[in-house]
Design a protein around this nucleic acid. Structure first.
Length: 359
DNA sequence: AAGACGTGGAT
DNA sequence: TATCCAAGTCT
């Protein structure tokens, strides 16, 4: 892969493989910048199988930049419900508004202008413009880090900025005017289908003859990602499902907490102590947070879920409030089951609602 | 530059 | 079960 004739043969082999094996994915049908943008944002840290249905529904409802810009953020979030990393949806919506104002509703085709949009970094800008417009821009993400590191037999810790620089430089040597969009997609697809993390299929690899780690080392040992350990933290929380007649008290998550922009049942940290003590604490805390005096019921659901480095155990309590005003704040409201169906909630919030529907 | 951000699948 | 991590970006 040192000289350009090597790289030419590399591209030919890889593209031939891609022509034969590429998956039939909805965003490959009609490659406008807008559609590729949506797919790329959804695909950030998210597996292809998960994205497919979300993409179809999203594009059907928001077929153009303008339709997305015209929508309420709450509706955009509803279409994102369950996908995670909700900031992506809020930033994409903000970017759509920006595109209408600054670019007359046309998704820009200039790299720096695309990079300037919220939620789009170097990878996404390169991916969108190479895939949609065949602009010769390099990409570097999870799959290609692995592919490049193995091809180069690159031993350094790939999380270091110096390594990132080398990997971007390598990516840059790969991409040319020859079908850059397909090349980039082929590199990623090779990384996920053949050059995968645990069981690389080197026997099936169309570019094995170029792979230095296969010749001189062990592909499975690469990439070297350093030895940083995530410190998981166990959390015990309480969710209160406060009912009055047919409605439930919910609150909008704010900017400094998980699930910003989504609705959730009032939640707080569970206290330790004996049972009676705990229930008293829960009632007090509920009063403090919502302004409501509640008659606490039984815990009806226990959920375990993980959010980033937190492992959360959530005890859900029924509670009834017959009188009193919900604290006069924008982030609190009453909602019927029908209304809860329409609002964007986190997966745990949605599980609670599903449970209420069944009961 | 290390850590936050969601969720579900794989090992 | 615990841990990693998947088409990253932002702070």
């Amino acid at each position: 892969m040192q000289d350009s004739s090597d790289r030419t043969r590399f591209r030919q082999r890889l593209l031939a493989w891609f022509d034969k094996h590429q998956r039939d994915l909805p965003w490959r049908k009609n490659r406008t910048r807008y559609r590729i943008w949506v797919s790329e944002i959804m695909l950030q840290q998210t597996q292809v199988v998960t994205v497919i249905d979300y993409f179809q529904r999203f594009i059907k409802r928001f077929p153009t930049v303008k339709s997305l810009a015209a929508a309420e953020e709450s509706e955009v979030l509803k279409f994102w419900e369950g996908l995670g990393y909700y900031r992506r949806a809020r930033q994409m919506h903000a970017a759509a508004i920006q595109i209408v104002k600054q670019h007359n509703g046309r998704f820009p085709d200039n790299f720096d202008e695309v990079l300037a949009l919220p939620g789009i970094g170097r990878y996404s800008a390169g991916a969108i413009l190479s895939i949609a417009d065949d602009q010769p821009l390099p990409i570097l993400e999870g799959n290609t880090v692995r592919v490049y590191a193995r091809l180069m037999n690159f031993q350094e810790d790939v999380t270091k900025s110096a390594s990132q620089k080398s990997l971007w430089a390598f990516a840059d040597t790969l991409v040319t005017r020859k079908r850059p969009g397909d090349l980039n997609q082929a590199l990623m697809e090779l990384g996920s289908e053949i050059c995968n993390k645990n069981t690389p299929q080197c026997m099936k690899c169309p570019v094995a003859s170029f792979c230095l780690s296969l010749q001189r080392g062990d592909p499975r040992q690469l990439p070297n990602k350093g030895t940083k350990r995530v410190r998981y933290e166990a959390l015990h929380q309480i969710a209160i499902v406060i009912q009055r007649r047919k409605r439930y008290a919910i609150r909008l998550c704010g900017p400094d907490e998980h699930w910003t922009g989504l609705w959730d049942f009032p939640r707080f940290t569970a206290h330790t102590g004996d049972i009676a003590d705990k229930l008293k604490q829960v009632t007090q805390e509920t009063k403090q947070r919502t302004g409501l005096s509640v008659q606490l019921g039984k815990p009806f659901l226990n959920l375990k879920h993980a959010v980033t480095r937190y492992r959360i155990e959530l005890d859900c309590y029924h509670a009834v409030s017959v009188e009193g005003r919900l604290r006069a704040q924008q982030d609190l409201r009453w909602a019927s089951l029908d209304e809860l169906q329409e609002l964007a909630m986190s997966v745990t919030g949605r599980k609670i609602v599903r449970h209420l529907m069944k009961a």
